[in-house]
Every structure is written in structure tokens, then in C-alpha cells.
Design a protein around this nucleic acid. Structure first.
Length: 636
RNA sequence: GCUGGUGUGGCUCAGGGGUAGAGCAGCGCACUCGUAAUGCGCAGGUCGUCGGUUCGAAUCCGACCACCAGCUCCA
């Protein structure tokens, strides 16, 4: 008998050679139905895998990442099978599972059209109905090469040739279709109950633009119809919340042909911006930051010294003044460093926290520009902290706390990633090691869960990234903390220590919002344009019912203005219904309807944009209530 | 930057070799109205830009520009 240790540490015994699916079935009929793949001593395998030795076994369903990935990956194989049935000359490249579904890259003579997608989908349905089992076959390298060369699958041959010496080479077969694949796969095609092909796009073989462009078909798949429908609804919802669309409708900002990637902020967008900045300043002053502002254009020699010329030139804009070369800043750090260097510093002053809402310009490829999310100029809510080596941990923790507080205010959850040394970088391995360890220790001290992103750091130091999660579950990189031993070296930064000697400070670069522009974009989509009252460009609109109520309406407006509440009067000659409809469309938090009764009694009829008619209350009561809501930055 | 698609009044969109149309928004007039669209009228466009084909181009062709979906890259 073989001993099977399960996730809950219970142990069961089975005949040697018992396949995993039978074990799952034995544990519970439900697990037998829902299990998709399993791990044996941590190695992912198919459910048909026969167990010959004692092992720890874990089963995965669609609810677990390995299960979900195998499910979508299997869907990709089914799609490839359908494509091969319909278009036998198409060559297969790769077809992995991705976060929300799967894709498969094909080398096809003619690009696929939407009509082709429908045809492929129908063929996939047929394959699902055939309920073909996925069969794993392990082969020698020679055998694999022979099989895929004979089939003319040149991309597969290329992949096989690049597999490491000791790799186990396997292919999977369902029906007549064979694909090179490490697996694992779900038991059979019949499990793919709900799927949809979503789009086609060009994609280079291996993501390299020097290679041939292939046709990539994206799709998604779920075990239940309802899950697919929910997913499709979420896509629609994301479209409805698109900040580019809402930006026009709510008159927040615009992007014009005259300045691709350079957004214009309109009065209402500026209110949002200014509220964010005001909040930001208050919170930074509280935490011992001092605000500075550094020039946008600085001499090229500065950028040569900082390493930007060498490492970041392709992303920079340059200009010439009186025959001298200048650069438009893509980052704020050199400017901040010059401020630090402008005089001598004592160890007693440290840490010095210099904050800057700095406008930076970066040359981004034209194809990547996207509303406020990806632009060519943006404002970083930057700060550079100059400190003693002994202060590193505490300062990093301070920034983590600040970020945590900020995101909480907007109701965002977030995830943390630690990025390590990239290929294109400067400095010694030791320095990188020290900096990376310092970041890691701060994260551990704060008890934070994090993921390591190898090679994703800045060219001058490793970083902690904060990815916030919006209401649709999408993640956005906003805050970062970068620890930097190199710039202080390059710029010969010093402080005078207790011993009267000069020492080298350490720097932190950090942002919380990341880019004010992007953050506004994210907020717009997160709240679907219905900003919390403290942020709303217009907080209240007063709606007189008829002309004779205009003067009372004006009194109400004046009262609210006295409290610095952002209020508008809609005295147009229109019906209340019409005015309400418009105020709702503008997502104004409060509508105050005033007529004879209100004018007589000094009250307002309150309509809240999401809760609807809330009845009549004394004006003063309403004032107190909305001021409290603004003060506490209440959400929703 | 690359691949594919799109470009008609402020917005959404129809039309399509003979010289432009709707709805909404705007403006005017009437109605004086109680919680998501009152009615009537008026005005508004060198059909992205430049070039070509043609007797004639918004329509066909080409280049460029911008946008959209991806690829690659990032705040």
C-alpha cells in the first residue's frame, strides 16, 4: 500500500498505482467532480497520474490558481485543435493561460476575422461535446523532434531544441490533435463548459519585434456559464467606467491632437487634482516632509552625472539654450539632490524629507499612450529622503505606513512586490544586496506579504511597488519605494557626523499616488465618476422648481458657499425632472430641490445621487451633515 | 515603434463618385412645473491633414497625423 498525505495532514492508504482521480473521488464525490489537476510532492500532475510511492498530494479545482491555469491552458489546446481542423496549414506557436483567460499564437497566412472566431468557437463546442480525454505521452528528444518536424511545426521544433538537456519532454493528445506541452491538463475536453473567444491581435513570436508577427487569439473559459456571464458583465462595466469616456462626460480633462500624451486639465479636473494635492500636502507636513520645487529643464551634464544619460536617454527629451544642451527632466531626483547639496548638513538634521509634486516628461512609444493612465508628461508626488544608514528601516516603514493610510482613504486594497536588480543598472553587487535586504527587512518588520519580481528594479536601486486593486479587481502600480546608495555616491552627497568627519547619506525615492494623472484616472474608474463628496468637483446642485423659487435658491447657494462647499445653481427654465436627470448624469453627490414649502420653512429637499430622495430637512442640518462627510472623507 | 482597425457638427451615429443628414447638447420663444428627458423654432460641418485618380471626391487610391485593440515598455 502507498501512503497519501493530504493537505490537512491526514494520511490515507491505497493500492500502488491508484490514479489520483480515484483518490479524489474517494476523499469526496464533490472533489472527484471538481478536481482538475493535482500536485504530488509539490509537482503538478494530471489526475490520471498513478501513484506508486508514498507522497503528499494536493488537489486543485478552478478555485485554485493551478487548477484555473490548467483549465484555461486546456481551453487553449481545444482552440488550437479547432483552428487546426478548420485551417490545417496554420502553424502553432504557444498557448498559455493568462490572468483572465488564455491565448494561443498562430502563424497563419491570412489574419483571423471576427467571423473566423465564431467559426472556431463553434468547432470548439463540437470538441467539448466529443469529450476527448487529454492524454500525456512522454517522449525522447529525438522522437519529439521527429514528430513535430514531420508535422511541419517549426515553432515547436524551435522550442524543443531550446529545452534544457535533462528536461522531460512530453506531448498531450486529445482526439487527433497533438501539442508539445509540459502539462498538466484537465481530464477531458468535456469539462470546458463555458468559454468565449474575445479578440485577435498581432503578437511577435517570443515578444521580439524582429521576429515574425503571429496572430494571437484571446479567450477565456470557466467551468460554469454563470461565471462566464459575470466575467463578460465585468468587461462591459469596465467599458462603462472608462476614464477617457467619463473624462469627457464629466468635463474633467481632454487630450488634443496638438499634444498626444499631454493631457489638458479642465476646471472640474483641477478641483479633483487640487483636492488630492491639498490632502497630500497636509499628510506630508504632518509626517515631517518639507516641500520643494525644482526646474523642469536642467543642464545635460547633470543627467550625465546621475546616470540618466547612459541609462534613460531613449525616454528623455532634449533642448538647447544658447548652444548649450539641456534635458527636460524625466525624474525629479537630480533636482532634489541639488537642493540637498546646496548647503552643508549635520547628522542631527537627518532624515531630511524633501517632497516635490514634480512634473516629469518621458518619451513613450506612440502606441502605448492611453488616456491619463499612460502619458508623456505627468506629475509625480515624489519625495527624496536623505538619511543615516541606521535610519533606513524606520524610514521605509514610515513610507509603507503612509502608503497604507493613503490607499485606505480611497478604499483600495493593495498588493506589494519587491523588485530586484535589472540587467541595465549601475553599482556593485554588494550595494544592491545591502539595499535589497534592507527593503526586505522593512517588509518583514511590518509583517507584509509580498511577491519578488526579479530584475524589475530601477537602474539605481531595488524597489518596493504597491499595486492597488480597484473595484473591478484590476491592479494598478502606484506607489513605489526605492532605496538608493548610488546617487549619493555619484553626487558626492555628505553629512557631518558626530566625529566631525564627512559621511555618505543614503537616499529613498518614493511616490504614493505615483502619478497624479494616473491616480485620477484610476479613481475615475474605481468610483465610475461618482467621486466621494470631498473630491467631487461639484458637491451640491440647487434645483429651484419654478422661477419664483430662484431667490431662495440663491440664498441656499450663498449659505453653502460661505462654508466653502462647491455648489451650483440650476436656475434654467426646465422641469425638475430634467434638472435631476442632468445632475444625476453629472454624478453630483447632492441635489437640493427647493420650492414653495422649502422657501417658507427654510429647508431643503435632499436627493442623494445613489440613495435618491431623502426627504426635507432644515438647511442648517444639511450643512452640518455635508461638512462632516467632507471632513471625514467618507466613501460612498 | 510594430500589427490590425477607425476618423462625418460639442457628443452618439447614419449616409456614400454629382457637392451632407438624425438624435442629444447649444441658442430663442412658449409653458411655471415637486424627484431621471415639456413643446415649437433657430443656428452649427472646407466629412482628420496633404496629395493623386476623375468632368466632378466626404465617398476611390497613396502618404502623413490622431485615436482604438493588442505586442513591447512603464508612474
Amino acid at each position: 500500500m502507498v501512503k497519501v498525505t493530504l493537505k490537512d495532514d491526514s494520511v490515507r492508504e491505497y493500492e500502488p498505482g491508484t490514479p489520483l482521480n480515484r483518490i479524489a473521488q474517494d476523499i469526496s464525490p464533490r472533489l472527484g467532480r471538481e478536481a482538475l489537476v493535482a500536485a504530488v510532492d509539490g509537482r503538478l500532475v494530471d489526475l490520471s497520474y498513478p501513484l506508486h510511492r508514498d507522497a503528499a498530494v494536493e488537489f486543485y479545482t478552478f478555485e485554485d490558481e493551478p487548477g484555473r491555469d490548467a483549465f484555461r491552458h486546456s481551453a487553449a489546446h481545444v482552440m488550437a485543435q479547432a483552428v487546426k481542423r478548420l485551417y490545417p496549414d496554420v502553424k502553432l506557436a504557444i498557448g498559455p493561460a493568462i490572468a483572465e483567460g488564455f491565448y494561443y499564437d498562430f502563424d497563419a497566412e491570412k489574419p483571423f476575422t471576427p467571423a473566423d472566431l465564431e467559426k472556431i468557437e463553434r468547432e470548439m463546442q463540437a470538441i467539448v461535446k466529443e469529450d476527448l480525454p487529454f492524454k500525456r505521452v512522454e517522449v525522447s528528444r529525438e522522437e519529439a523532434l521527429e514528430r513535430f518536424s514531420a508535422a511541419g511545426e517549426k515553432y515547436k521544433v524551435e522550442l524543443i531544441n531550446e529545452l534544457p538537456e535533462d528536461a522531460v519532454i512530453s506531448y498531450y493528445q486529445q482526439g487527433e490533435f497533438v501539442d508539445l506541452c509540459a502539462g498538466p491538463h484537465i481530464p477531458s475536453t468535456g469539462r470546458l463548459k463555458a468559454f468565449k473567444l474575445t479578440s485577435v491581435a498581432g503578437a511577435y513570436w517570443r515578444g521580439d519585434e524582429r521576429n515574425k508577427m503571429l496572430q494571437r487569439i484571446y479567450g477565456t473559459a470557466f467551468p460554469k456559464k454563470s461565471q462566464l456571464e459575470e466575467y463578460l458583465f465585468r468587461i462591459e462595466e469596465a467599458k462603462r467606467r472608462d476614464h477617457r469616456k467619463l473624462g469627457v462626460e464629466l468635463d474633467l480633462f481632454s487630450i488634443q491632437e496638438e499634444g498626444p500624451g499631454f493631457p489638458f486639465f479642465h476646471p472640474k479636473g483641477m478641483v479633483l487634482r487640487n483636492q488630492l494635492e491639498q490632502f497630500w500636502r497636509e499628510e506630508h507636513y504632518k509626517r515631517g516632509y518639507q516641500e520643494i520645487r525644482t526646474p523642469i529643464i536642467l543642464n545635460r551634464s547633470l543627467w550625465e552625472r546621475s546616470g540618466h544619460w547612459e541609462h534613460y536617454r531613449e525616454n528623455m527629451y532634449f533642448t538647447r539654450i544658447d548652444d548649450v544642451e539641456y534635458a527636460i527632466k524625466p525624474m525629479n531626483c537630480p533636482g532634489g539632490i541639488l537642493v540637498y547639496k546646496s548647503r552643508l548638513h549635520s547628522y542631527r538634521e537627518l532624515p531630511i524629507r524633501l517632497a516635490e509634486l514634480g512634473l516629469v516628461h518621458r518619451h513613450e512609444l506612440s502606441g502605448v499612450l492611453h488616456g491619463l493612465m499612460r502619458v508623456r508628461c505627468f506629475t509625480q508626488d515624489d519625495a527624496h529622503i536623505f538619511m543615516l544608514p541606521s535610519q533606513i528601516r524606520e524610514e521605509i516603514i514610515g513610507v509603507i505606513d503612509l502608503v497604507d493610510y493613503f490607499y485606505g482613504i480611497f478604499g483600495f486594497n493593495y498588493k506589494v512586490e519587491l523588485s530586484t536588480r535589472p540587467e541595465k543598472s549601475m553599482g556593485s553587487d554588494e550595494i544592491w544586496e545591502i539595499a535589497t535586504t534592507a527593503l526586505e527587512e522593512a517588509l518583514k518588520a511590518r509583517g507584509m506579504k509580498y511577491k519578488v519580481n526579479e530584475g524589475d528594479g530601477a537602474f539605481y536601486g531595488p524597489k518596493i511597488d504597491f499595486h492597488l486593486e480597484d473595484c473591478l479587481g484590476r491592479t494598478w502600480q502606484c506607489g513605489t519605494i526605492q532605496l538608493d546608495f548610488l546617487m549619493p555616491e555619484k553626487f558626492d552627497l555628505t553629512y557631518v557626523g558626530e566625529d566631525g568627519q564627512k559621511h555618505r547619506p543614503v537616499m529613498i525615492h518614493r511616490v504614493v499616488f505615483g502619478s497624479i494623472e494616473r491616480f485620477i484616472g484610476i479613481l475615475t474608474e474605481h468610483f465610475a465618476g461618482a467621486f466621494p463628496t470631498w473630491l467631487a468637483p461639484v458637491q451640491v446642485r440647487v434645483l429651484p422648481i419654478a422661477d419664483r423659487h430662484a431667490s431662495y435658491a440663491r440664498q441656499v447657494v450663498e449659505r453653502l458657499e460661505k462654508e466653502n462647499i462647491r455648489v451650483e445653481l440650476d436656475a434654467r427654465n426646465e422641469k425638475v425632472n430634467y434638472k435631476i436627470r442632468e445632475a444625476q448624469a453629472q454624478k453630483i453627490p447632492y441635489m437640493l430641490v427647493v420650492g414653495d414649502r422649502e422657501a417658507r420653512e427654510g429647508t431643503v429637499a435632499v436627493r442623494q445621487r445613489s440613495r435618491g430622495d431623502e426627504g426635507t430637512q432644515p438647511l442648517e442640518e444639511f450643512v452640518a451633515r455635508i461638512l462632516e462627510e467632507i471632513r471625514t472623507k467618507a466613501i460612498g
